[in-house]
Design a protein around this nucleic acid. Sequence first.
DNA 1: TATCGTAGTGTTTTT
DNA 2: CACTACGATA
Length: 804
Amino acid sequence: MSSELEKRFLSLRKQVIEASFGRLNPVQRDAVFTVNGPLLILAGAGSGKTTVLVNRIANLVRYGTAHDSDKIFGTAGEEDVAALEALLKDGGKLTARLASLLSVNAVRPWHVLAITFTNKAAGELKTRLEAMLGSDAQDIAASTFHSACVRILRREAEHLGYPKSFTIYDSDDSLRAMKEVYKQYNIDDKFLPVKSALSAIGRLKDQMVSPAAAAAQASEYRTKLVATAYEGYAKRLFSAGALDFDDLIYQTVLLFQEHPDVLEYYRDRWQYILVDEYQDTSVAQFLLVSLLAGGHNNICVVGDDDQSIYRFRGATIENILSFEQHFPGAKVVRLEQNYRSTTSILDAANRVIKNNVGRKGKTLWTDNGEGDRVCLYRADNEQDEAAHIASVIGQNLKNGAHLRDHAVLYRMNAQSGPIETYFARAGIPYKIVGGHRFFDRKEVKDIISYLSVIANPRDDLRLRRIINEPARKIGAATLDAAAGIAAGLGCGLMEVIAEAQNYPALGRALVPLKNFCAICDDLTAAAQEQPLDELVSTVIDRSGYRQMLEAQGEEGRTRLENLGELVSSVKTYADEKGDEASLEGYLEEVALISDIDGYDEEADTVVMMTMHAAKGLEFDYVFLVGLEEGVFPGEMSRYSDEDLEEERRLCYVGITRAKKELYLSCARTRMIFGQTKRNPESRFLTEIGEGELQVEESPVAAMATTRISAGAARQRETTRQAESFRSFTARSGLTGTAPRPTAAAKRGAGIAFKPGDLVEHKVFGRGTVLKVTPIAGDTIVEIRFDTAGVKKTMANYAPLTLAH
DNA sequence: TATCGTAGTGTTTTT
DNA sequence: CACTACGATA
């Protein structure tokens, strides 16, 4: 081949490859086409990092290093050049021959491992890869740290002395286990609350400190106590064949450190490793990644130090700050162009984050245009704040926006209550992400416990949970006796009660114990014979749980409905996995499910969640609520600069979720944990600068003279709302669409108010209608009252009539 | 042994 | 305010 022809071929090949990836800016392109060696992508919020990640993997698998290589596999002739030209002009077909000429050292899909933060993100990655690569994408591994580790441990647990069918403890299980440890070692939780011990131990595991090492390095009373608790806890979990969340990572790292042959296998398996949200990884996760990448050294991490918000969970920002030291020769790429937000929104974000020290430092910019100014609403209290949000949403809907374009983000889950109440009353469909998870409900956890005892009878903790649920006359005394015998024999509880007749100490409870064993035997047999969803129904029936709930009236009915949902969740799982479906597999999926995984962006409802949960998402209209000192930044972070910086990063995350409009709000008084507080406005507002904001004050605040009567009325309102909130959540669970207003609640319903109307309000007296805003199912009526100032009310709820 | 009532307590963010 | 843990009683 002449060198002229070769040059033309190479140039064309480059163009064809680039053309297959849509439009990329030069920095993004650099990131996509860097194939080998360590790579750090510093990706600002909204900089298209997922696109880069997907394209980068696609390039690995499809073209390898062809983009920047002058190697050609095979000999390219004139006709190949012509074929490429045709391809560029969209007039050609990609033949097998061309495909091979287009690639150099392409990576086999099963050599790629992509680690994301949530299952949802992993799923999305997979979907987008399938769209680009078709069936090749099937073999690419995309999962979270935790599920990747579970998969490894399911194969290798025996190297560590754990059974392959180990149970995964959630935080509730961990709490129970630790309480037993406290009892066993006579630890007083006055000196060390159980939760503190657990989080201290979690932190130790994040840093790969073993119980022995913790004991050795403990010098103070408190750390010694932690070390004792740690040791007891680890023993307990080991003998139960259980791992907690932190163990999944910890034990996997241990496995790799202690079994080089095992590590070798996985190094060979995953030669290309990508880690998303790298700023939120812990020391243990860093070790895991570097052990795996140690062989081929092909590691690509994506992250944004400004978005590190999980320090409290052991994440260390050092991982991203020292990537270049950890991986010498690393290439660093910065994505600073934002494709998501308006300049106004980005300015606010930049103004806040620049107050942090110790960051890599970058400034986002966009050519999306100025956009509207960021709004600030100073509400009177949290109800007023909620009302304002509802009215803005109503306004936006009128202008053609969809409900699903709106997100309400808050610092803590407890803040959702008042907003939820208001939305429910106003008939605005909404969905809450997070809070109490479905799988945390008692009845659901109980049935799950039955299932996990079937899968792993060694797990005493879950056995204890269900042995007397429903009541079977097996009380604490019996259980203690059995546990004593088990400890003496060094075996599990289950083995003791199965042979109860051999132990005189259990004589009194022999019959109930035998009955329970019969249930377990039946269920174990059912697990062999029945499909999964049928098994769950069998568990509900045979355990007597259904009967118990049926006897409980209204509350039992909702719980039974929840169990029905559990059965359908199992069915969905079984249908999805087909032959792969297994009891262990389902339990594992349930254990690792996260709140955000259930979020469905297609459903047309407003969505509410914490700012933590919103990481990685974007919305046209974002409400950031509760911008008060003590709420956001939170009370706990007030005295520590490091914690405060984390709050600030969280604020940065919140702001940068918004594409078109950002609405901030604070309340002069707020009821929090049962007490009404007056908090100063958040420092984050000061940092943005009031001059940058479009400020609106609560109308009530201006009317100081009428405050007392309005306050009294509000108080009555509050109690009524609290009731309706409770009954609502009891009825439909914490997630779900708001029920339509019930007939009983309707007061001013059916009247078509219009501006200028004279109205009579039961509490506020006479007034004039200023504005009428219809929102889903109801109407916001803004009224100037003669004595009570301007108020917004819902037509369907307000005690409102037309005056004459 | 089970259930009911009361007193006390702790309240962030989550895989 | 909401949940838990514990104690008294049937």
